[in-house]
């Protein structure tokens, strides 16, 4: 009769200490690398996203190597023991660790597929903000209100993620201005055009042009500017700068805001919704 028993390796105090030590070293190493790369990236201007791009990959590689080292050199498992461990691990996932495991797999998918990167502005579920970190379990976002949101990585499988800049530091901003139907639309468009192109936050190139559009509605006209901000961190400043300077110029040139009658307001809301 062949002996089918699998002997589990002896895990003594020395092994546990070594195990903790390896995890601790990996963690500290990641912290140092993260700090250094973030520090460098913040000093290279618009290339910062490129520098930060390598962070998740480094994290997963270091943790992966640490796990490999623990299994092969510290615990010294053989293939049969690994199979047994796999079975136990599967059972653990079934019992309650499935969310954690889904997060880790989500993290690996994010690292390889790059639907977004550290530094991007993304909308994930109900949250919008700049990705400050992609970890093993979660992605951290800094919202415009400076809240730190941890979104679990598995959301990548269940929710659509919109990245506004997709790895570049410039980002398209859409600015709407509403004017009265009686105001001169040509002059208004000229003012908005010049307001966008003279903003201190604008970025224009052959691949990043700006557009000014006009649309007529029953009781007002909408001017829409589509232009790139030079750094996504100035998204709201850019919008505010263009709006402020445009309205200042509008008021000096007799261009007025829509004169909404309370009875008409409901109609306008319906039009907007459609």
């Amino acid at each position: 009769m062949p002996d089918n028993t699998i002997t589990l390796p002896v895990i003594d105090t020395g092994v546990i200490i070594s195990l903790i030590l390896v995890i601790l070293i990996a963690y500290l190493f990641i912290r140092v690398i993260t700090f250094t790369l973030v520090f460098i990236s913040e000093r290279v201007g618009h290339h910062r996203i490129t520098v930060k791009m390598v962070l998740p990959l480094l994290k997963f590689s270091i943790y992966g190597f640490a796990i490999y080292y623990i299994l092969i050199y510290i615990v010294k498992w053989e293939s049969s023991q690994l199979v047994l461990f796999g079975g136990l691990f599967g059972a653990a996932i079934g019992f309650g660790l499935k969310d954690l495991f889904a997060d880790i797999i989500g993290g690996i998918v994010i690292t390889i597929e790059k639907p977004y990167q550290v530094g991007d502005k993304i909308k994930m579920g109900n949250y919008y903000g700049e990705v400050s970190d992609i970890g093993i379990r979660s992605t951290k976002l800094v919202t415009p209100d400076d809240n730190l949101v941890s979104a679990p990585n598995y959301l990548i499988f269940t929710q659509a993620v919109a990245s506004a800049n997709a790895g570049t530091s410039e980002m398209m901003i859409v600015i709407d201005m509403f004017i009265d139907s009686c105001s001169d639309p040509v002059l208004a468009m000229k003012i908005l055009t010049e307001s966008v192109m003279t903003s201190k936050y604008v970025y224009v190139s052959r691949n990043r042009p700006f557009t000014i559009l006009l649309k007529d509605f029953p009781f007002y006209r909408r001017l829409r500017a589509k232009a790139y901000v030079n750094d996504l961190r100035y998204e709201f400043e850019f919008e505010s700068d263009v709006t402020r300077r445009t309205w200042k110029e509008f008021s000096g040139n007799g261009i007025e805001a829509p004169n909404i009658n309370i009875l008409e307001a409901g109609t306008i809301n319906q039009t907007n919704a459609s």
């Binding site: 201007g45 224009v204 750094d231």
Partner: peptide, 8 residues
């Protein structure tokens, strides 16, 4: 200024 993307 190039780093800040003010000059293109």
């Amino acid at each position: 200024l190039k780093k800040l993307r003010m000059v293109w």
